[in-house]
Structures are given as structure tokens and as C-alpha cells.
């Protein structure tokens, strides 16, 4: 009680006398309701401003936790894991794609991606598995590296940024390779290996926070991507 009185005094606020109970319809109070007060003798913001930074290095969940994969089917995920193992195995003290949790991360990433990217991945993984069964009588997840090479090599291409191969299966093979590498090289596990080898962390970049973000803004990516002609005749905020 003392606390709220002193805080009110400090803020120069007056106590509003509650109106007597009566049957008349409620009317707006003549003065605004009192400002919510602090639970201590001084406004809590002051304390917050004086808190010393905690000795905390924020932990990324990957350091201790597994991604729960749920977008791909079990078969597709098994194919992706085998593909990851083959395309980026552990080399020279660096973690491989499996150690970096790349397949599970890609399950998450593709799961929240536009439909065409999802379909490109799903049909690509399905085709690899079907070809392995047809050629070697085994799922892709169970074949030897040399057998996998027979299926993959004809589709490997060189290509320049933003211009992956156009043919759909070559597109998949080359993009999934690139994505597996990015998910691995940008992982915490990779970063730790770099540090252990005395190299500078390769992936530190200047991150921009939202600058004065629009208070009405909805989350991006909530709709199929922008700019295509809107069929609706009604005005709407695309």
C-alpha cells in the first residue's frame, strides 16, 4: 500500500473516489484511471536499467537438441539422410552433414517453404528411391556409395549463382547438394570445428534487426509469395 501511495505521489496523481453503486448506466470516469504502479518503492524500470548484463552466451538449441522432423515421409527422410551422408561426409576434422543435423534442418526448412520447392524435393527424393529399388532392389537408404554414384553422377552440373540447371531432376540433384552443404557449413557444429582448428568463424555476418518495424505488419511468408496479379476484383492488401 505504502508503495503505491508513494508512487502515486511521485507521479502527482490523485485518487479517484469510486462512485456509489447505483442503477444508472455506467458513465466514463471524469479522470483517467490511475496509472498501474510499481511493486516496489521505485518504478521497476529503473532497476531494469541498472541490471548488469548476465554472463550468458545464448545457447542455440542445436547444441543440445534434435530437430523433430515431420515434413518428409520416413522414406523420404531416410533417402535425404543417405544423400547427405554421401554428398558431405565428415572430412578432415569437419563434421559431416549428418553430424550437423542437415537433413532434419532441411525437413524443417522445406516444410515451411513454398509448395513448388516442397514438390521439387519430394519428387526428387521419391525418384532417387524408386531408381535405387529398380536398379539395385533396395531402397536408396540401403545402397552402397558406389551404387548411389551411378544414380547421381549423370545429373551433376556446374552452374552459376541464381541459375541452377533447368531440367527438373538435375535441378533437384544440384540444389539439394547445395542446400545440404549450406545447412552443414552454417551449422554450429561446423563453426566449432573451425574454431577448434584455430580458424576464424567463417559465417559471422552483420545481422540487421528490423528497423522501426511497421506496427501493423503481418508476418512475411504467411501467403504464397507476392507479386503476381491478384484475381480478386476487390481491393485488398496482398
Amino acid at each position: 500500500m505504502a508503495a503505491s501511495v508513494s508512487a502515486k505521489t511521485m507521479l502527482g496523481q490523485q485518487t479517484v473516489t469510486p462512485p456509489p453503486p447505483q442503477a444508472a448506466p455506467p458513465v466514463a470516469p471524469s479522470a483517467p484511471p490511475p496509472v498501474a504502479t510499481a511493486p516496489g518503492p521505485v518504478p521497476w524500470m529503473r532497476g531494469l536499467r541498472e541490471v548488469k548484463p548476465l554472463p550468458i552466451t545464448p545457447l542455440v538449441p542445436d547444441a543440445v537438441a534434435q530437430t523433430s522432423a515431420h515434413f518428409f515421409t520416413d522414406r523420404q527422410l531416410a533417402t535425404l539422410r543417405q544423400l547427405s551422408e554421401i554428398m558431405l561426409p565428415p572430412l578432415k576434422g569437419y563434421p559431416g552433414a549428418i553430424d550437423a543435423g542437415a537433413p532434419e534442418f532441411l525437413d524443417f526448412l522445406i516444410g515451411v517453404s513454398p509448395v513448388d520447392r516442397q514438390q521439387m524435393y519430394q519428387s526428387g527424393l521419391d525418384r532417387l528411391d524408386a531408381e535405387a529399388r529398380q536398379r539395385f532392389g533396395m531402397p536408396f537408404a540401403g545402397i552402397q556409395a558406389s551404387q548411389a554414384d551411378e544414380l547421381l553422377r549423370p545429373w551433376l552440373r556446374t552452374w552459376m549463382t541464381d541459375h541452377p540447371p533447368a531440367e527438373p531432376f538435375a535441378h533437384f540433384v544440384n540444389l539439394v547438394h547445395s542446400d545440404i552443404r549450406t545447412a552443414t557449413i552454417n551449422s554450429e557444429a561446423w563453426s566449432k570445428a573451425e574454431t577448434a582448428m584455430g580458424r576464424e568463424e567463417p559465417d559471422v555476418g552483420l545481422y540487421w534487426f528490423p528497423v522501426d518495424p511497421d506496427i501493423h505488419r503481418e508476418e512475411p511468408g504467411r501467403e504464397a509469395s507476392a507479386p503476381v496479379r491478384h484475381p480478386a476484383p476487390k481491393k485488398q492488401h496482398a
Binding site: 542455440v60 545447412a183 552454417n186 568463424e201 559465417d203 534487426f209
Partner: peptide, 28 residues
């Protein structure tokens, strides 16, 4: 408005956020 961060500490591990800025190839 900026802070140096490793890619692994970003929500999408340095991949472009899916569905966002699809026409800005320069964005990351």
C-alpha cells in the same frame, strides 16, 4: 540496428526465409 552474428544463430541458419523477398536475389 545491427549485430555481428554467426549464421547458425539465425532462425533459418543463413538460408533466406522461405517465401520472403523472393524477387530480391540480393537479399539474405
Amino acid at each position: 540496428d545491427t549485430e555481428p552474428k554467426p549464421a547458425y544463430a539465425l532462425p533459418f541458419r543463413g538460408f533466406k526465409q522461405p517465401g520472403r523477398l523472393e524477387h530480391v536475389f540480393q537479399s539474405n
